[in-house]
Simulated scan of single mutants.
Amino acid sequence: MVLTFTRLPNTLNSFRNAIAFSNKVRFLATKPADSLFSDLTKSVDEKNKLNKNNNNNSVAVADENDAATIQYVSPENDSKLQEFLNPKPYLTINTLLTPLKREIYLANVSKNGFFKNNELTKLKDGNSYTLKLTNDQIQALEPSIYLRSWRIKASIKKTNIVLRALKDLPLKKAITQLHFMEKKVARDLVEMLERGVKDAEKMNYNVDDLYIAESWVHTDGSWVKRVDCKGRGRAGVLTFKWVSVRFLLKTKQTKNRLAYLANKRDSQKSVSSFITNGKIRGNAPGFYRW
């Protein structure tokens, strides 16, 4: 009997190749410097050595020319931030009036101390003009400072008590009064009015001429409510109130104009009398007996 193995050579070749591959893998895995995939990736030890040499255990600094880098800018050197925090004043005289009207307005104010409607004003060129403005235009042209607060931890009722005490007070006197008030909201209002003093210096206003013309207090509408736990299973509602305050500061120019208009209204009032021009008949009424 004769046995024939036709596929034996192929089986031996595949077995030999498998043994050679396993020896090669064992040799690669035992190499200390390289990994199993040394041709594709670098070892961890080499990466650590490179990082230690380049960075020296410090944070890497990006190149300034790289557009994706984020560079630190201090708040003092940030131009956009400074423009937002310190906006330029809105010059109403240059925007609301033409050059001729502006010259007439300034000449009228320098002559009377405030603006008078329909008054003949003589300019430097020798010509005389009259200028008529509405009440809203006059108020917009007069120098003023608008202050707006942040969120203040107080209620509208408590803040109104303080604001009524500051009505029509000079700015410096109002700051002094707030320093001696025992109300908690007075501390925040002092900081607001002190900002008004700095704004007046920037706009070249006389601080001694400023006074509090108007003030408002309102809520921002986002009050927080919490549960107020009480005894015997009862509960209430705690409301944390926040308000915002606004001031409008004006100068003596506005106060002098308002005083002039009040005197003018009083002088033009008709005198009321109960005595008639008719003849007296019969007994004289009571207002004739003196």
Rank of each mutant, 00 (worst) to 15 (best):
residue 190 V to W: 01
residue 211 Y to N: 01
residue 102 R to I: 00
residue 162 V to C: 08
residue 186 A to H: 07
residue 209 D to C: 06
residue 128 S to T: 13
residue 204 N to P: 02
residue 148 R to H: 13
residue 140 A to H: 06
residue 170 P to W: 03
residue 153 K to H: 13
residue 79 S to P: 06
residue 94 N to P: 00
residue 173 K to M: 07
residue 176 T to E: 13
residue 83 E to R: 15
residue 91 L to P: 03
residue 142 E to C: 08
residue 212 I to N: 01
residue 116 K to L: 11
residue 120 L to G: 01
residue 130 T to A: 13
residue 162 V to I: 14
residue 208 D to Y: 03
residue 174 A to F: 07
residue 152 I to F: 09
residue 85 L to S: 11
residue 180 F to H: 09
residue 209 D to S: 15
residue 195 R to A: 08
residue 111 K to Y: 13
residue 175 I to T: 07
residue 113 G to K: 00
residue 112 N to C: 02
residue 183 K to Q: 14
residue 171 L to Y: 11
residue 101 K to F: 02
residue 209 D to Y: 13
residue 80 K to E: 15
residue 202 K to Y: 11
residue 102 R to Q: 15
residue 154 A to Q: 12
residue 177 Q to W: 02
residue 159 T to P: 13
residue 208 D to F: 03
residue 156 I to N: 03
residue 156 I to P: 00
residue 164 R to Q: 15
residue 137 Q to R: 04
residue 174 A to T: 05
residue 168 D to G: 07
residue 197 V to D: 07
residue 83 E to S: 14
residue 81 L to D: 08
residue 148 R to M: 12
residue 75 P to S: 10
residue 168 D to A: 12
residue 80 K to Q: 14
residue 132 K to R: 14
residue 180 F to M: 05
residue 172 K to H: 04
residue 188 D to N: 15
residue 96 L to Q: 11
residue 106 L to V: 12
residue 187 R to I: 06
residue 77 N to P: 04
residue 148 R to K: 14
residue 111 K to C: 06
residue 176 T to I: 01
residue 196 G to W: 09
residue 132 K to D: 12
residue 126 G to A: 06
residue 114 F to P: 05
residue 113 G to I: 00
residue 117 N to E: 09
residue 116 K to W: 04
residue 91 L to E: 12
residue 155 S to C: 04
residue 75 P to T: 04
residue 84 F to S: 08
residue 200 A to P: 15
residue 133 L to V: 02
residue 118 N to C: 04
residue 124 K to L: 11
residue 176 T to C: 00
residue 143 P to A: 04
residue 143 P to I: 00
residue 146 Y to E: 14
residue 175 I to L: 08
residue 123 L to S: 08
residue 93 I to Q: 05
residue 120 L to S: 10
residue 189 L to C: 10
residue 105 Y to V: 04
residue 132 K to S: 15
residue 140 A to V: 00
residue 190 V to Y: 02
residue 175 I to E: 09
residue 134 T to G: 15
residue 79 S to T: 13
residue 169 L to I: 05
residue 77 N to C: 03
residue 212 I to Q: 06
residue 185 V to A: 10
residue 123 L to H: 06
residue 191 E to P: 00
residue 198 K to A: 09
residue 95 T to I: 02
residue 191 E to Y: 07
residue 139 Q to I: 03
residue 151 R to M: 12
residue 158 K to T: 04
residue 118 N to A: 12
residue 157 K to P: 01
residue 138 I to H: 05
residue 100 L to K: 12
residue 95 T to F: 00
residue 138 I to F: 05
residue 117 N to V: 10
residue 140 A to Y: 04
residue 143 P to E: 05
residue 89 P to A: 07
residue 167 K to T: 06
residue 145 I to T: 04
residue 174 A to W: 09
residue 118 N to Q: 12
residue 102 R to M: 08
residue 187 R to K: 15
residue 170 P to N: 13
residue 130 T to P: 04
residue 147 L to S: 09
residue 169 L to Q: 14
residue 209 D to V: 00
residue 160 N to C: 03
residue 138 I to T: 10
residue 205 Y to F: 15
residue 198 K to S: 10
residue 136 D to S: 10
residue 131 L to R: 13
residue 108 N to P: 11
